[in-house]
Design a protein around this nucleic acid. Structure first.
Lengths: 217, 217
DNA sequence: CTAGAGGCGTACCGTACGTTACGGTTCGGC
DNA sequence: GCCGAACCGTAACGTACGGTACGCCTCTAG
């Protein structure tokens, strides 16, 4: 399993200038992929390489800080306290699905996941763990309470919240993320995302909604 | 969309020795990730670098050949002609799910997807397209006839085979592939794979089986 | 038996890039 | 106005690695 605490909030310890540098590094990462050079970051951020090394140690440190910096920015608003009826539950789920699809199809997410996947092979840093914590696991942490509330209210029926979440995750994401990461051009307009979110939600409710005959899966 | 014909069969044009070299490169790729060096491949394969360059052009050529070589090996047996009852349809789907989970959780698949994802950013080669063609799209090509047959036999009900396939894909894969690619240790024993395959199949049948009330999704 | 092709091992070259060092500049505190 | 710290820009260093050249061996054809 992954190290806990990989998603500590770093926005406090970073000065304004450092955040600007990390934003520059992030933009460069999106444009160039993992072959960003320290020189390029320094030039883009209008800072010296010496400063980069003083602040972030080495290249891996800079990359890690950049990923954590972006991760700290996508901290999404917790779901509104549940009003416990089917319509609002469906709306919540749909919202989660839509937000999630928007995130994974964004340029920055794709770029970050690409470098994290690339680094996951040779375990020098923990970019994979960081991305996972702030992506898939953060989503689970935010969604599970909603699922549990739905169960409490008798709207959902499942054994294990984790399993239910993973099914929802699969219904929403399907092949989108891997195709995007592998460079396939998936057309994801606002409209298709909305449609996919609704479809995934309805399918999930069909599988896990209370009072239907689909039990024991 | 992706280039067609990215999955041409290369096993004819390769000599025994070349295949051995590619196998060595593949093993090294699994062990070391994308930072395999030409020297390392040459040493592992007991051949000279000059030979590598003569045969494969450059490093990208070697990588591409390696990925295609592995891809050509996983060409799976086409499904047996469908005997058109629900049990055999379910068995087929379960088999597909199980095979697919075994593939994506294998060391070689993870390694290959990692380098392909890494290379997808800076579009020098088409590793992403190759992996996609021999992975996700090959699966679709093999599974869709089964789905269509199920529909013909009145066992399945869906509008679009592509959409149905993608849902099945999501139900089977869920978060497994991205977690593995990002370095998470997902425990995937023979038993859990079997269970997941059965669960995914039942869920899919619940959503797309004929004669149930879940229409219009 | 010889010639030549194919291939192994290794040394070598050029370059890109991570990392370090250094001189010049800005700026807050005295 | 002066000092030191922080920082910018750039030059320099070391290394790793892609790519090439070359000497030697082996094996097959004639």
């Amino acid at each position: 399993m992954l190290q806990a605490g990989a998603d500590i909030d770093t926005s406090e310890t970073l000065t304004e200038r450092q955040q600007a540098v990390l934003n520059a590094a992030l933009r460069l990462l999106v444009e160039e992929g993992d072959n960003v050079t320290m020189t390029a970051v320094a030039r883009r951020a209008s800072c010296s390489k010496e400063t980069l090394y003083k602040w972030f140690g080495d290249r891996d440190g800079l990359l890690t800080a950049t990923v954590q910096w972006q991760a700290s920015k996508v901290r999404v608003a917790p779901v509104d306290r549940k009003s416990l009826d089917l319509a609002s539950l469906a709306a919540s789920l749909e919202r989660f699905a839509s937000d999630w699809l928007k995130v994974i199809s964004s340029d920055t997410s794709i770029a970050l996941n690409r470098v994290a996947v690339g680094h996951a092979g040779s375990g020098k840093d923990d970019l994979g763990a960081i991305v996972l914590q702030n992506g898939r696991f953060a989503l689970a942490r935010r969604l599970k309470p909603v699922l549990e509330a739905g169960r409490q209210a008798g709207l959902l029926d499942f054994e294990d919240a984790e399993t239910a979440f993973r099914t929802f995750f699969g219904l929403v994401g399907r092949d989108v993320q891997i195709r995007l990461l592998l460079g396939d051009r998936v057309e994801l307009t606002e409209a298709t995302i909305g449609g996919d979110a609704r479809r995934a939600t309805q399918q999930f409710l069909a599988l896990f909604g209370a009072n239907n005959r689909l039990k024991g899966l």
